[in-house]
Write a protein that binds this DNA or RNA. Structure first.
Lengths: 341, 341
DNA sequence: GGTGGTCGCTAAACTGATTTAGCAGAGCAT
DNA sequence: ATGCTCTGCTAAATCAGTTTAGCGACCACC
C-alpha cells in the first residue's frame, strides 16, 4: 500500500529549497517571508511528484490525525445507523477528516478495547453515538479530548445532538387536529420503562409530552392509550386488536414508532378496516417501511443524516452553544383523512 | 486526546534498560538474548505506566497501521450495510485491527478523494464493498496493496466474497418442491437489466439459474414469470395483482427479494387471499420485514455478517483460494404450506 | 563605519517508535 | 597470553514530517 511515494524531502530537492521551506509553503503558513518564486517552485514540484504528505509522520509531530472516532453502542449495524454515519461521513469529508468506526455492542470489555484502539491512533475527537435516543454514561477515558454525544445525553456536561421528539409529538398531534380528529385519538406504544428511565429512552417521554401538550392546548384528551412491552410490529398488532374490541372505535391512531404502525396496519387489514377512510394512522421515525406501506404512512422523520452532520460540525467547528435539537420533519402521506362519519 | 502518555523511553528508563531492549521485549521478538529478568522488568514497567505504543510513531517506521479501509459505493448507509460492517468490525477486532470507513456514493470525485485519504493514512489493506452484488471496476490506486472485494467481483484477479445466490435459488425451489408445489409456481422479479448486466447485479441471474436448475431437475417449469423494473414493494404488488388475474392461480410465489414479497403480501391481502393457505410465498434476502410480516416470510438470508467477516479474514490472513461463496441460509417461516386443494 | 533591522531562507532538533550494527565481558581453547 | 565465540545489552540511524533558532546578505540610519 503506497510504497515509493514522494516525500517532502523530494519536493524540497526538486524545488531547490529546504524541507522547512517546502513544509511552510505547503501548509500555507502565514508570516513566513518566502518569496513568491519559492512558493511557485514548491507547488510545482509537489504537483509534478504527486506529493501527498504522510499522515503518520505528520501526526507524530503535531498530534493531529484528521481522524474522528465514531463509537457507538450498536448503532453502526442497524438500519438506523445509515443516516447517522452518512451525515457524519459527509461533514467529515468537507473538513478533510476521516471516520474510524467502532461498535461496543454494549459490552464493557469491547468498549474498553475500542476506546483504547481509538486513543492509540490519536483521534482528534470522539463522536459517541447511541442507537436509541437515551442518556448514557461516557467512559472517562475519552474525556481527555473533544467529545460529542450523538442521539444521546449524559450527566457530564458534553455537547450533544438529539432529535426534537417533543416537537415531533406536537406536530403529530397538530396534524391530526388539523384533519378534524378530536375525541377519537388513540395512542399505541406507552411504555413505563422507556418513559421512566432516561437510560433506556428519551424519545418515549418527549414524544408523549409533545402529543399531550398539543392536544391539551386544543382541549382534547386521548381516547385510549395502549401499553406495549416493545415497539415492534407484533406489539402494534396486538395493541390495535385490543383497541378495535373497544367502543367507540378510535378515528385515528398515533403509534410511537413506524414498526408499531406496521403492526397496526396488519391488524386493521385483518379487521377489514381501511386506512385512512376508517382510521387514520400516524407515527414516528420514517423507517423505510413507512413509504412501503399501502397507503403510505404519515410519520415524523428521525433526521439521522442531519444529526450525524451536526455531530461532526459541533466536534470540529467547536460547540458554541452545546446541545443541538434537530427538528423531525413531518412526512405527510396518505394514511391521514378526516374522521369517518 | 491522550496527552502525557508514557512512551517507550519512559518504560525503558523505569526498567533500567535501553529503548531497544524494551521494544524487543514488548514485541516478543524471537532470538533476542535478553534475560528473563529483563523481560520481567520491562513488562512490569509497561504495566505500571499503563504504556500504550504510539501508533503513529510505530507505523511511521513499520508502514503498518493495523487499519483497514472499508470503502463502499453506498453500502455503509443502507439497511444492508449493517451486517457487512459488523462482521468486518468483529473480525478486525479479533486481529487487533480497526476500520476506516468511507463511502464513495458512486461519485468518481468522492471516490478519488476517499481513496487518497485512505492511502495517506497508510492503511494495511482495502475492502471494497458494493451495495448490490455486482461486478465493478476497481480504482487502480488501491491495487498497490492487498484488496478484497466484498459483495462484488471485478475483472482484475482479486479475491472476493459473494453470497451464494445460485445455491439459494436452488434451495428456494427445493423447499417448494418439498411442500408439494409443482405446476403452480410463479416467479416475481424477472428483470432483464439486472439479469443481463453484471455491473448492475450478479444476484438476479444466479438466483434465477438456481431456481430453474432445481425445478428442471424435478421436471418442473415455472407457471409464470413477472417482470419488474425495480425490486420494490410497489412492483411486487403490481406483479402479484397481475398474476391473480390469470388462471390458473399460482399455488406458490417466489419473489426475487423480500421487498417484492412485501408487495405481494399486500396484494394478496387485498384480494382476500391467505398466506400460506391459499398461496405460499418465499423469497430472498431476509430483510427485517420478512420476520415482521404476518405470517413470517420464508426466505434465504443474505449472510452479511459472515461476508464482512470473511472479507477481513481473506485480507489479513491471506487468501489461499481467492473467492469465497458464502452460503445463504434458508429461513423457514410460516409462509409455506402444501398447495391448496 | 558601526549598528540595527528586515528579508529570504536553512540546519538541526523533535515527535516515538523499530531496527541495524556492534560493544563489553565472560568463558573456553590453544 | 591470545584469540575466539557467545551472551546480554545498547548507541545511533531511521521513518517523514513540523518547528525552533538563527544565519548571511542587504539596507538604512546616525
Amino acid at each position: 500500500m503506497g510504497r515509493n511515494r514522494a516525500t517532502l524531502a523530494d519536493v524540497a530537492r526538486r524545488a531547490g529549497l529546504s524541507k522547512t521551506a517546502a513544509s511552510m509553503v505547503l501548509n500555507g503558513r502565514e508570516g513566513t517571508r518566502l518569496s513568491a518564486d519559492a512558493h511557485q517552485r514548491v507547488f510545482a514540484a509537489a504537483e509534478e511528484l504527486g506529493y501527498r504528505p504522510n499522515v503518520a509522520a505528520r501526526s507524530l509531530r503535531t498530534r493531529k490525525t484528521a481522524t474522528i472516532a465514531f463509537v457507538s453502542d450498536i448503532v453502526a449495524t442497524t438500519r438506523f445507523a445509515g443516516g447517522l454515519i452518512r451525515g457524519a461521513l459527509d461533514a467529515a469529508r468537507e473538513r478533510d477528516h476521516v471516520l474510524l468506526i467502532t461498535e461496543t455492542q454494549g459490552d464493557a470489555t469491547f468498549e474498553q478495547y475500542a476506546i483504547e484502539a481509538m486513543l492509540d491512533r490519536q483521534v482528534d475527537g470522539v463522536i459517541y453515538a447511541a442507537m436509541a435516543t437515551r442518556r448514557l454514561t461516557v467512559p472517562p477515558a475519552i474525556l481527555g479530548g473533544p467529545v460529542v454525544l450523538l442521539n444521546a445525553t449524559s450527566s457530564d456536561d458534553l455537547p450533544c445532538v438529539l432529535p426534537d421528539d417533543d416537537r415531533a409529538g406536537r406536530s403529530v398531534a397538530a396534524v391530526l387536529l388539523e384533519h378534524g380528529h378530536r375525541d377519537g385519538i388513540a395512542l399505541i406504544g406507552r411504555n413505563r420503562l422507556k418513559e421512566g428511565d432516561p437510560e433506556v429512552s428519551l424519545a418515549a417521554e418527549a414524544r408523549l409530552n409533545g402529543i399531550r401538550e398539543a392536544l391539551g392546548e386544543a382541549g382534547v384528551t386521548l381516547l385510549a392509550e395502549s401499553f406495549c412491552t416493545e415497539w415492534l410490529p407484533e406489539h402494534g398488532y396486538a395493541a390495535t386488536r385490543g383497541l378495535l374490541n373497544r367502543s367507540p372505535r378510535p378515528s385515528a391512531i398515533i403509534c410511537m414508532n413506524d414498526r408499531l404502525a406496521f403492526g397496526a396496519y396488519q391488524a386493521l387489514g385483518e379487521a377489514g378496516l381501511t386506512v385512512p377512510d376508517d382510521i387514520s394512522v400516524i407515527s414516528f421515525d420514517d423507517d423505510p417501511i413507512a413509504a412501503w406501506l399501502r397507503p403510505g404512512l404519515a410519520t415524523t422523520a428521525l433526521p439521522h443524516e442531519q444529526m450525524g452532520r451536526r455531530a461532526v460540525e459541533l466536534l470540529l467547528d467547536g460547540a458554541p452553544t452545546g446541545n443541538a435539537l434537530v427538528p423531525m420533519p413531518l412526512r405527510r402521506r396518505r394514511s391521514l383523512a378526516p374522521p369517518a362519519g
